[in-house]
Amino acid sequence: RAAQGRAYGNLGNTQYLLGNFSEATAFHKERLAIAKEFGDRAAERRAYSNLGNAHIFLGRFDVSAEYYKKTLQLSRQLKDQAVEAQACYSLGNTYTLLQDFERAIEYHLKHLQIAQELRDRVGEGRACWSLGNAYVSLGNHEQALNFAKKHLEISQEIGDCN
């Protein structure tokens, strides 16, 4: 049964990489059910991430947000800060797609905070880039400029010419 769970996860990932997002979600839901059956919270967390990602490409941003929130909740329980940061980044981008810029900013700020704690300059740069764009969408050009400057500074430091 445990191996069946892993096989479902692998099938979900393969369908996802083939661009078959509906099929991917069906397999990841099976994977999720088996992870719950075994109380395997790490596998449950992975399934939520994979389901969130697949729903983005199905255009179901609202569903993605709910799965990413489950990922965030489990990453906190599992005390995995890198995954927590990634979940916040995903939620920030998903709320941008949902045009809820205030909520997008909340999650991007949380992502920024964790990236700073982890000394992850690439993550920090991405958070600043995202925050700059979100503040532009809200018409807050002063804050947008602050984050754009910070993004430029970090990009120069890490040698990201793009």
């Binding site: 892993r6 996860g9 692998n10 990932n13 996802y16 990489l17 596998a43 992975r46 399934a47 991430s49 994979n50 990602n53 983005i56 490409f57 980044y89 995903s90 981008n93 941008t96 797609l97 045009q99 991405r126 880039w129 995202s130 700059g132 764009n133 969408s137």
Partner: peptide, 26 residues
Amino acid sequence: VQSVHLLQVDSVQRWMRDLKLMTECE
């Protein structure tokens, strides 16, 4: 107009490009 605007959010576009190749492996 809003959806055209959204397509111009370059940081989201970049995230989605990376996301397409991102899977949580078993």
